[in-house]
Design a protein around this nucleic acid. Structure first.
Lengths: 209, 209, 209, 209
DNA sequence: GATGAATGAGTATTCATTCAT
DNA sequence: GATGAATGAATACTCATTCAT
């Protein structure tokens, strides 16, 4: 099968899984939505579960986070790294919100434990730890106050996740909108507002006066 | 059927739905786990979906949030209300984390739109709005800075949600533990740490110097 | 489900499995032939494999062989026991030839090893050993010659099995018939011929002159 | 395709079919085990069923039984022919037991009727009839008693078949062994024992005193 | 001639739900 | 009111086979 077709199936599956959940999506639906033969999905991915794993793998390799490099960049001050992290996170997660929701769902439930361990150990935790390292570096350098680096990281990540959690909730909270067609994640003013809020919040929390 | 039995089924279902997702849980499993007849669940709740709605309803009525009252309490200052909110949220959500995860799952996915609208409109949004009101009150009174009340609310709620998201992630982040049997949510030191972090964070963010 | 219906399914399945093999028979076919709902078979037997096991169990309990008693019967001489065994075997196996073929198929193939072990250890081997015991008793008593008891048993059992193996082969060999509708197993003259042959053969082989 | 490759596929298929049955074996498995392309099997043999037929054909032509010649050999007495038959059968069938089991399976079940007819008419029955002819010749010559030639043949063939039926049964009966790795068919002492038993048995049965 | 890719029809099994009692 | 039995529709998956290259 062409790599294109494989990618097409994966992208289709991400949207469906994100929208209806893993168990709530049948490979029939995926096949229909991707306009490919039902048997081919099993033929090429092996099983529904392996398709899921392929999605994780695909995304992990295609949207590799630049956080590690950021941590080791010596040309930036800690607070500049925090700002860059906020900007990068918002751009990336808002853009890939369906995949992000997929991951969130997988983390909430306790089925497929080994896959979950993989996601935490190789995707989620490394990112969070990188942010924590930046904060620890700032503390060490004397730029930042003696905050709780892990919980500060969780606040940063959690704020964005809370926004991405539900379109409906986000629309109501940030735009007072009940319009089901309004997409707050592609509204630049919303993104800017989130960026400013997080930067303000973390500057106050981290920087010594 | 006795109300007790009904409650028993609901509590059993919450745990299963939270752990395996709505579509990932069969009413057979619920019947077996609750030790009741399979047909009885349909007989009393009507359908699997209606059982889900009953869970929402039951929880909404049994753990009604005291936030509305808090907002209107004139004996407390805004920052005292914020502190009380943090304490209350942590206690309540950590204690009912399975139901909370259930709600989160429902919000992430887009199936059962009307139920989701119900949850957002009647449970999640009112709570968030109440917190926002407290912040707005603090701004109006001149106690708080001119922050973004909605996003500050989202930070408060999102931080706790991020912690509740995944036991595994939480254990690694807050206790450096890979032990699958360790339950961070019943570790008082973890709860205290979260409380202190959030209060420090929000005091800095909200209070004028 | 009524025991009758369960039995009906089992009897239908025996015929189909015997005719088309285990993997060659679908539970769809069984359901159709037994005129029951497809899902009910899985509902009551658990799986196709468990249905197979139920067949074994059912037959084992319904056609318990009287061989053990025969062995310990002190009123009969060893050669009388051999004759009784021949008569009993022919009647029973000719009558239940489809179940018998089922067992044979299961023994030839090496799938479902544990079930096969069960069949050999609990059904086939005990019967053969009982016959061997009779022969050993005859040798010990001085009635029989010093033959190989195990191989003599195999000859007895193998002769009958060879006849039951294939209707077509049996018809050609014993009746010179190519008529596909002719059933040699319900032809009394065939049964008699087999009985006489086996008795003559074994008398010569076993009895001292 | 080279004849070698074709033969390789056939030999691989014999083992798989014998072990797991015709319907229990997929051509995918055969392709994988023979290390050839899946499509090639269909391409060269036409279909799974035709592959089966090719196996029959291949074996029939490669292990053509010398029985016909034996019958017409005038230099041997009837009892010498019987002895030669016993020796030849044991050697050949023990050596090709997988192919033999394949044939047995095909005879037990009633699927593929025309193929079965072919096997009976062209392979099994001619062999059995040849043996019967030897016996009839012995009777005619006055060497043998007036036994039932057909049933005596069945006893000869049936005894060997019963031994070949199941490794497990054979091991338990002839070696009191439960060791799954023990192969009684390559144990020379077992073969000798069978030879001696059959010769003794048939000499007594056939030869006039 | 040989084969990777594709597919329609099939498999066993599980599901939520209904119904007769 | 309560429940064992039953069922139609769906599930993931596998199959032998075909076909374009």
């Amino acid at each position: 099968m062409s790599a294109d077709k494989k990618e097409h199936i994966i992208l289709t599956a991400i949207d469906l899984f994100a929208t209806k959940g893993f168990e709530g999506t049948s490979i029939r639906e995926i096949a229909a939505a991707a306009n490919v033969n039902l048997a081919m999905i099993n033929y090429y991915f092996g099983s529904k579960e392996k398709l899921f794993e392929s999605i994780i793998e695909y995304k992990a390799s295609h949207s590799r986070v630049a956080l590690e490099e950021l941590v080791q960049d010596t040309s930036l001050s800690p607070i500049q790294k925090i700002d860059a992290t906020i900007d990068g996170y918002i751009d990336r997660l808002f853009g890939h919100r369906n995949f992000h929701r997929l991951i969130q769902q997988e983390l909430i439930t306790h089925t497929r434990t080994t896959l979950q361990t993989h996601i935490v150990n190789n995707i989620i935790y490394p990112n969070s730890r990188a942010i924590s390292h930046i904060i620890e570096e700032g503390i060490q350098k004397g730029d930042f106050k003696e905050v709780d680096p892990r919980l500060t990281t969780i606040t940063l990540v959690g704020t964005i996740n809370q926004i991405l959690l539900s379109t409906r909730y986000c629309s109501k909270m940030l735009s007072n909108s009940d319009d089901p067609d309004y997409n707050p994640y592609e509204d630049e003013s919303v993104k800017n507002r989130v960026r400013n809020h997080l930067k303000l919040l973390l500057h106050e929390h981290l920087l010594k006066k």
